[in-house]
Design a protein around this nucleic acid. Structure first.
Length: 550
RNA sequence: GCCCCCGUAGCUCAGUGGACAGAGCAUCGGACUUCUAAUCCGUUGGUCGGCGGUUCGAAUCCGCCCGGGGGUGCCA
């Protein structure tokens, strides 16, 4: 990565200047190298001299001069400027820049692979919506965010595992069981009311009807409480199949679907509570069992076992995270959660600490909720309210690629307003099509040049400003990947994809690829092929398709 | 009340304490006999919610206020 190489070179120069006495021996801050916003400030720039000014008691310009005097720039750096008030500006040699086309082509699908993770095992758990109803757009945001993050981490050298936690136990499940039972009985003509607090959604009736089709009346002839459990299980499996299909539409696939119920079946919940108890983190009060999180930084204690003897969701989550960290040995665990779960964060951080795991190894990544809007009016959401627009409907309306591009591209911290009519109306001017069109154009050119062997093309013939600008943009991708992996934020990728597409379209407009000059044609074909690698790589990280024609 | 997130162009949003704050859409004006015009070039558009503070330097960090969203002792 160019940026890291420059950083090392600068650090070395600072050390040299200090050794020779040109700079005082002060603790130097992290040397920053960035891409200047203005093209007139070089390809890369560092404000390190400005940072050092105060501690060194020298003017930034003098420091910059002292650093450049010791700087040993590699051949690919064409020039280093000092610009007031003290910036160091680096200019990359165009000749070297052009040669990088070969490097990108050679890397192929490994382009932009960087080693941030060092092979450490990381788990990304995301979506994990209760299997008591279909997915909605908010779940779609979690899916897009979690999956793209997993793709980025994989690219950045982590060993990534994607997991969906299936909440198939607990009180919500009992309510779901009873709801399916009621609809099932109603479907077969029995007088059975949906219980108070039950799931009123029409899909429950659909599930019940489907079960009645294949199983007949046999669940009415069983003990009702057994029947509820049995029907609920069938219903959960049907919904999980739907959820799997919805996620597959978005090209989201998991390594493991982890059942909450398994933690009860294997007595892992009991063991986890026992462990917390032995650590002195459990208190009994008002007939309930509490996790003493108030003494570990949380605002208050949290209930593990209700006064009615039933464990809470929190209790099984303790066991779940014990399993993640201790039994499966993940170095870092990332839980992607909607903002409505933010109250879960402090107590889970406290729990992993109580289990002897450094709490920074658990990252609770919170994304703000999605407000679905139709014709300027908010659409009511929530499985328990019964009426909502499903993720599948949204994917059908705006398309999976547009939805993912949109969902990945927003900062998780920013609230999102998803206007269905707007999304539909803008579908043909959606940035995702602009980007995909760039890829299709590249493929079209290469298709047109079939039969032309350009393996011996010489990229150093590329000298048009639009060509060099395009190459610079391509070489930015490894930096974007590294930053996204470190910050756990994939949202710069769609932004970058658009910039890359823009530079390509500009190049296309300025430069005829297949022309009269056979050498230049070959060089440009190489550029197009390399650019296709860069763009396809980017689109893959976002999780949208890279079409060869549109 | 307390805790978390947000407030940047008409709209949707980018913007690791650095150089004159950016992109897309929308507006307006140009460019196709071409490897795809789903494109390109130009134009209009800003008290970065407000007021203080820290700093050589603040959209970015801190405090207070205003506005929006979420959470808040036995739901998940």
């Amino acid at each position: 990565m160019i940026r890291d190489d420059l950083r090392r070179i600068l650090e070395e120069a600072v050390a040299q200047a200090q050794a020779s006495g040109d700079l005082p021996e002060i603790a130097s801050p992290d040397v920053m190298v960035e891409r200047p916003s203005s093209g007139s400030h070089g390809d890369y720039a560092s404000p390190v001299a400005l940072k050092l000014a105060r501690a060194a008691r020298m003017s930034p310009m003098a420091i910059a001069g002292a650093i450049t005097a010791k700087l040993e720039p590699p051949p690919w750096v064409a020039a280093v400027d000092v610009a007031p008030p003290g910036f160091l500006n680096f200019y990359i040699a165009p000749h070297w820049l052009a040669q990088q086309v070969e490097a990108i082509l050679a890397a192929g699908s490994d382009f932009a692979r960087v080693d941030v993770g060092g092979g450490r095992p990381v788990q990304v758990e995301f979506v994990s919506a209760n299997p008591t109803g279909p997915l909605h757009v908010g779940n779609g945001r979690g899916a897009a965010l979690g999956d793209s993050l997993a793709r980025v981490l994989d690219k950045a050298g982590y060993q990534v595992q994607r997991e969906y936690y299936v909440n198939d136990a607990g009180s919500q499940m009992e309510m779901f069981n009873a709801s399916v039972y009621a609809r099932y009985a109603q479907h077969l003509g029995a007088a059975e009311e949906l219980p108070a607090g039950g799931y009123p959604g029409e899909y429950v009736s659909d599930i019940a009807a489907a079960i009645a089709e294949t199983n007949g009346r046999r669940f009415l002839e069983m003990d009702p409480s057994d029947a509820k459990v049995a029907l609920g299980r069938l219903g959960v499996e049907m919904l999980l199949d739907q959820i799997r299909e919805d996620l597959a539409l978005m090209d989201v696939h998991y390594d493991r679907w982890f059942r909450e119920q398994s933690l009860y079946d294997n007595r892992k919940v009991d063991q986890a509570l026992q462990m917390l108890s032995e650590g002195g983190h459990v208190v009994e009060r008002e007939g309930a069992v509490w996790f003493a999180s108030a003494s570990l930084g949380d605002e208050r204690d949290n209930v593990l076992v209700r006064s009615n003897g039933l464990p809470t969701y929190f209790a099984s989550d303790v066991a779940y995270h014990y399993d993640k960290f201790i039994e499966r040995g993940f170095d870092t665990v990332i839980d992607v959660l909607g903002a409505d779960h933010q109250g879960h964060v402090p107590r889970m951080k406290a729990v992993v600490g109580a289990l002897g795991v450094e709490s920074h190894r658990l990252v609770m990544l919170i994304y703000q909720l999605v407000n679905l809007v139709r014709q300027g009016r908010p659409v009511a959401m929530g499985k328990r309210s019964g009426e909502f627009v499903t993720l599948r409907e949204v994917l059908g309306e705006v398309g999976p690629d547009a939805a993912r591009f949109f969902l990945v591209g927003r900062s998780p911290d920013a609230m999102m307003e998803f206007d269905l009519d707007l999304a539909k109306a803008q579908s043909d001017v959606n940035p995702v099509y602009y980007v995909q069109y760039a890829h299709a154009r590249m493929a079209g050119i290469l298709r047109h040049a079939e039969g032309t062997d350009f393996r011996d093309g010489d990229p150093t013939l590329l000298s048009d400003p639009s060509e060099l600008t395009l190459i610079r943009k391509m070489l930015e991708l490894p930096e974007i990947v590294a930053d996204a992996a470190l910050a756990l934020e994939p949202h710069p990728l769609p932004h970058y994809a658009q910039e890359l597409a823009t530079e390509f379209h500009t190049f296309y407009d300025r430069c005829r690829v297949i022309g009269d000059d056979p050498d230049l044609t070959k060089a440009r074909l190489k550029l197009v092929a390399a650019c296709q690698v860069a763009l396809a790589t980017t689109l893959d990280l976002i999780g949208v398709g890279a079409p060869d024609q549109m």
